[in-house]
């Protein structure tokens, strides 16, 4: 089985599906000849040409609106937004149009597409190249939101997203685009969009702590769990993979087992997805809790440039939360 990084795995998924599905086109700023700002679409233009790998004018609203029109006609557009931070000029198209089209047309005009965009910090990108806006899309009815943490899952989740009937925001954690490596099966496979992954299973029952994480922060959760183990605290780590709709069953089963939960995300704390996760845990597993649910998140500030490692909820910030929760 070949080893790939996440960029290669996503590229492999795009190529595979474009060969399989003639309706599919890739579009965006410099996705063609250049192969995208992170080279995720490299080589696609050479194989599929101008008609299926489309360099567009620089306008996220134009890219997404045009993609919606293609989708209404029956194509499968896969627009790339260069950085999730740039998605806001197209947010109106996503929120007011894309998310609502199936519903408001009574099912006559679903607009199927997968919007790919890199998210997250840790690449010295500063405030406009580092944001994690997932909760802004989870809040909007009609969208699915996916964020892989491994090359294997990136390929399988992307193929599943492309074949899913609903519009998907596919958030690619850019900090681990190349830093994550792993075995990726050749050829076709999908990773179920409705299932979280238990990245580490705890065997010590109610002495353990559940950590919920996704994307690049999964690795920080793992590092924190390793440190916690040295201090006698075991963690069960759940990689959400699909953020919405949520695999609540896997989360609740784990929290009922451990009675403790720490939620990690890069996005700002207030009204971040962690807030919803805490609410769901309280609604579904309150009687099983041994400690208050904890959140380790970005701050309620813009994303800083030089001090980005202070902002990010790295393992050294996760560890105390895990230990406190375990010893509550």
């Amino acid at each position: 089985m070949p080893e790939m990084n996440m960029v290669q795995a996503i590229n492999d998924a795009l190529r595979l599906e474009m060969r399989r599905d003639a309706r599919m086109v890739v579009m965006g700023e410099d996705v063609g000849k250049v192969g995208g700002v992170f080279r995720v679409t490299q080589g696609l233009w050479d194989e599929f040409g101008d008609d299926r790998v489309i360099d567009t004018p620089l306008s996220e609203g134009g890219i997404l609106g045009t993609a919606i029109g293609m989708a209404l006609y029956g194509m499968l557009p896969v627009p790339e937004i260069q950085f999730a931070d740039f998605i806001y000029p197209g947010y109106d198209q996503i929120v007011s149009e894309l998310a609502k089209l199936r519903w408001r047309s009574g099912g006559e005009y679903p607009a199927k597409m997968v919007i790919r965009t890199p998210v997250g910090g840790g690449i010295r990108g500063g405030l406009y190249h580092s944001q994690s806006p997932e909760s802004l899309f989870i809040h909007v009815a009609g969208l699915k939101v996916v964020c892989p943490s491994t090359p294997h899952d990136a390929k399988g989740l992307l193929l599943a997203s492309l074949r899913d009937p609903d519009p998907v925001l596919f958030f690619e954690p850019k900090r681990i685009y190349r830093a994550s490596r792993g075995e990726v099966p050749e050829g076709d496979y999908t990773v179920d969009l409705s299932r979280a992954r238990v990245a580490r299973e705890a065997t010590s029952g109610r002495a353990a702590v559940t950590i919920l994480a996704w994307g690049a922060m999964l690795y920080e959760a793992v590092a924190a769990a390793d440190k916690a183990a040295e201090q006698g605290v075991e963690c069960e780590i759940i990689d959400l993979r699909t953020l919405w709709p949520l695999d609540l069953d896997t989360i609740i089963a784990s929290v009922k087992k451990t009675g403790r939960v720490v939620i990690v995300h890069e996005a700002a704390r207030t009204c971040g997805f962690g807030a919803e996760l805490v609410a769901l845990v309280n609604e579904h597993a309150f009687d099983h809790l041994e400690a208050p649910p904890a959140r380790v998140t970005g701050f309620d500030t813009p994303f800083p440039y030089t001090l980005e490692m202070e902002y990010l909820p790295l393992s050294h910030r996760i560890l105390p939360a895990v230990l406190e929760t375990a010893r509550y």
């Binding site: 609106g65 029109g69 209404l72 006609y73 007011s96 005009y109």
Partner: peptide, 29 residues
């Protein structure tokens, strides 16, 4: 806000002008 695939009439937009790029994408397709 009625639309009809049989009549090839697309959904009117949520915000003024929001459908104009849809028309372009459909035309390109």
């Amino acid at each position: 806000h009625l639309c009809s695939r049989a009549a090839r009439v697309a959904p009117p937009p949520g915000t003024l002008g929001g459908h104009l790029t849809h028309a372009v994408g459909c035309a390109w397709a």
